[in-house]
């Protein structure tokens, strides 16, 4: 039982890792907590659903469409909302992202209603290994996320774009003097973040039914994961996501499963109280 929960927790954690990474990247480069992560994930689920079920595309093509759609939405939100409010401080941006979140969620609701939907994928038998039940979807989730994480890691550490993103996160005006345009890097960050959230939406849609609140269900856990890792730290976000995933699933041993989300909240609160900088990274106390 415990081993099964631990395994499920790792997979849930991997699923959380992509949006947590997206949240932390936006926080690093653009300096605000993007409340619209959940809604953008929802948009990814629906974009993939349209491609897969209505247009009959295979899941890989549907995933690509989801990534492109959410990246586009991120660019639009950046161009018309976030960039215009950039100088007004991180809370104004956070409130604006709440507005963006409502818009995206309700565009999905307007076109697709509140009904639950699922992808058109063949059901397959779970595998049994050492007494643990492993679903096909869990394998897909794990492989996709690991590949994405490796790709993002390589991008951030070994490419000029990755260096530029980290440089802008450190000190945007110094980066400007070095020839790195903040605006360009901001746009590229949205493309990357949009792609991650789009893929996360596809994986979430494999794991549970797709409805306008699919992303909201993960919202608190995503924030908990990113805070646990120290907002702004990519590796921290991934470790935070795995911890939150395992903690949520394992909590079933001691508290009713209805209260899974409370675990995330308790982790955030405990962490902020006892260690204000997260596992790795930023300061959380104010003057």
């Amino acid at each position: 039982m415990a081993a099964q929960l631990f395994f499920n927790g790792l997979v849930t954690g991997l699923l959380l890792a992509l949006p947590a990474l997206a949240l932390t990247l936006v926080f690093g480069v653009l300096k605000f907590a993007n409340f619209a992560v959940g809604a953008m994930l929802t948009l990814g689920s629906f974009a993939a659903w349209v491609a897969n079920v209505q247009l009959g595309m295979p899941m890989t093509a549907a995933a690509a469409i989801a990534a492109v759609t959410v990246a586009g939405a991120g660019l639009l939100a950046d161009q018309f909302a976030f960039e215009r409010l950039r100088r007004r401080g991180s809370i104004t941006l956070l409130v604006a992202s709440m507005g963006v979140s409502l818009m995206i969620e309700n565009v999905c609701r307007f076109f697709f209603g509140n009904a639950s939907r699922g992808f058109d994928v063949a059901l397959s038998r779970p595998i049994r290994w050492e007494g643990i039940r492993i679903n096909q979807e869990q394998i897909t989730i794990a492989i996709t996320v690991v590949v994405c994480l490796v790709a993002v890691d390589v991008l951030l550490r070994f490419t000029p774009l990755g260096r530029a993103m980290r440089a802008v996160a450190d000190n945007a005006s110094l980066a400007a003097v070095r020839g790195v345009e903040r605006r360009t890097i901001a746009r590229l960050t949205w493309v990357l973040v949009g792609a991650l959230l789009g893929l996360a939406g596809v994986l979430a849609g494999l794991d549970r039914s797709i409805d306008p609140l699919i992303g909201w269900n993960y919202q608190i856990a995503i924030f908990a994961a990113a805070i646990l890792g120290g907002l702004g730290s990519p590796i921290g976000a991934v470790l935070g996501a795995l911890t939150i995933g395992v903690a949520e699933e394992m909590s079933a041993l001691v508290i009713p499963t209805n209260y899974r989300q409370v675990v995330s909240f308790a982790v955030i609160l405990a962490l902020l109280l006892f260690r204000a900088n997260g596992l790795l990274g930023a300061k959380a106390a104010r003057k």
Binding site: A33, I91, I227, L272, A284
Partner: peptide
């Protein structure tokens, strides 16, 4: 807490 974190705690 810094306001971004306060925002998150209150959402929770």
């Amino acid at each position: 807490l810094e306001e971004n974190y306060l925002a998150i705690v209150t959402i929770g």
